[in-house]
Design a protein around this nucleic acid. Structure first.
Length: 421
RNA sequence: GGAGAGAUGGCCGAGUUGGGUCGAAGGCGCUCGAUUGCUAAUCGAGUGUACCCUUUAAAGGGGUACCAAGGGUUCAAAUCCCUUUCUCUCCGCCA
């Protein structure tokens, strides 16, 4: 959420930034509501001041035994007026608020302007793309023939886009999770195991609600949502609090399953593990002082990509353009891993700086030595999407006979197994 | 799931019987100052958040709201009534 005062005072700037996302927004209505709001507040607060003064006086009169029926009658109408103004105010405020909640973050100046993913800017490539002396298969073929993933029975148990990891498949997935967690913990991140179901306030804090409700699995009976990423519970840990600025930067890492409805992507990535309703992810989250959040983003992106380096998986980093940027993000680097089976790069991590957009929504504040209160910047990135890392290993480490070599760093997590066969 | 108790400022804890001068006693903590070889102790002052108005570089000043959340009664609610949430105790069930 943007600061209303900031929007009002910098309306042209905010308008142009919002336009570069290709987002329509009724700024005139917003300004009108703000004018209304201030007008009502001025009126109603003056009346309340008057009422408070009189009520105080009434207390004294009553002790003195004076008749207060006339004052009571008069003040009743004042209170009625206050009531109706309060109602008006809350209407205006709730409309204003719901508008603000659907206004996307201001994109950072360094973000290239563009319409869609084709305008994203590649800024780095790492690793050598292997030259196979056979035609590399897509991971779903490898996985099925090795018997380590069962897509059909997964769909039987739940529905399409759910699958079963089996035997060394499950083992490899678990090895990846532990390898990633251990690596990040060694880099100073604190491990978190959060709730996997959260309430709507928490979902609103990070920006999933109100705009993207159709993307979430919801437990109606209990008014709880399954998390689409650990970002949601972990970022909100300090929601509605004022933390001591000396603990910044807060660095957290969390492995969780993630749940996404994937509404609107029915035809896409129907095969394989790329787009599942349930998948595992290790997420890294930071709360940073605003002054160095951009440096923290660079470090966070390094921390995420270091996993791919250690696994020996080729990747590139792209900077998302304005039109491709997520709703809450000010700047995002996508890390894309090379998939020889599909002959393309696919997103495996998304590292973003949300600046004060989420902290303002979630009311995460910090207080420095001089007692100044400010909104810390929030950042996060996948470190990494485990399912996609799994399939990247299958495709990059496949051999002509259909077996898959286990990357060196994972072997100690797999009882020394060198090849999945 | 059944029965009962509770929720007050960073923390502890009064106030709720009998509504009024209560942003809220007292203590602890913290900050600043004094004293002091250092530390400790002692003494003094200060110490919530959000928003509105004013002034504005900032500070300052004036005001409104907030005693779990929402609603109601009343001239007036921390205090009375209703609903919800959460916590604790006992019973039942359970990984």
């Amino acid at each position: 959420m943007l600061d209303l005062k900031y929007v009002v005072n910098n309306i042209d700037f905010v308008k142009s930034k919002t336009a570069s996302r290709n987002v329509d927004f009724d700024f005139d209505r917003l300004l009108e509501l703000d004018r209304l709001r201030r007008g009502i507040i001025a009126k109603v607060e003056e009346l309340k001041k008057y009422r408070n003064e009189v009520s105080k006086q009434v207390g004294i009169y009553r002790k003195e035994g004076k008749d207060i029926s006339e004052i009571s009658l008069k003040m009743r109408s004042v209170s009625d007026e206050i009531d109706s103004l309060d109602r008006e105010l809350s209407d205006v405020q709730s409309e204003l608020n719901s508008m603000l909640l659907t206004l996307p973050n201001i994109i950072d100046d360094s973000v290239p302007v563009g319409n869609d993913e084709n305008d994203n800017l590649e800024i780095q490539r790492w690793g050598e793309i292997k030259d196979f002396d056979f035609i590399p298969k897509p991971h779903w073929e490898i996985a099925e023939s090795l018997g380590i993933i069962d897509f059909e029975r997964g769909a039987k148990l739940a529905k399409a886009r759910f699958s079963i990891y089996k035997g060394l498949g499950a083992r490899l997935e678990r090895a990846l999770i532990n390898f990633m967690l251990d690596t990040h913990i060694a880099n100073g991140y604190t491990e978190i195991i959060p709730p996997l179901l959260v309430n709507s306030t928490t979902m609103t804090g990070t920006g999933q609600l109100p705009k993207f409700e159709e993307e979430l699995f919801k437990c109606e009976r209990d008014e709880l949502y399954l998390i689409p990423t650990a970002e949601v519970p972990v970022t909100n840990i300090y929601a509605d609090e004022i933390i001591d600025a000396s603990i910044l930067p807060v660095k957290m890492v969390s492995y969780t399953p993630c749940f996404r409805r994937e509404a609107g992507s029915y035809g896409r990535d129907v095969r394989g593990l790329i787009r599942q309703h349930q998948f595992n992810k290790v997420e890294i989250v930071k709360l940073s002082h605003p002054d160095n959040s951009m440096d923290e983003l660079e470090k966070l992106t390094d921390d995420a990509s270091s996993i791919l380096k250690k696994l020996g998986l080729p990747y590139r980093i792209v900077k998302l353009c304005s039109g491709d940027l997520g709703f809450s993000s000010a700047i995002t680097y996508d890390i894309e891993v090379w998939l020889p089976g599909q002959n393309c790069y696919r997103e495996i991590s998304s590292c973003s700086n949300f600046k004060d957009f989420q902290s303002r929504r979630a009311k995460i504040r910090a207080r420095d030595k001089d007692k100044n209160i400010f909104f810390p910047h929030t950042l996060n990135g996948s470190g990494l999407a485990v399912g996609r890392t799994f399939l990247a290993i299958l495709e990059n480490y496949q051999q002509a006979d259909g077996t898959v070599v286990v990357p060196e760093v994972l072997r100690k997590y797999m009882d020394g197994i060198e090849v999945i066969k």
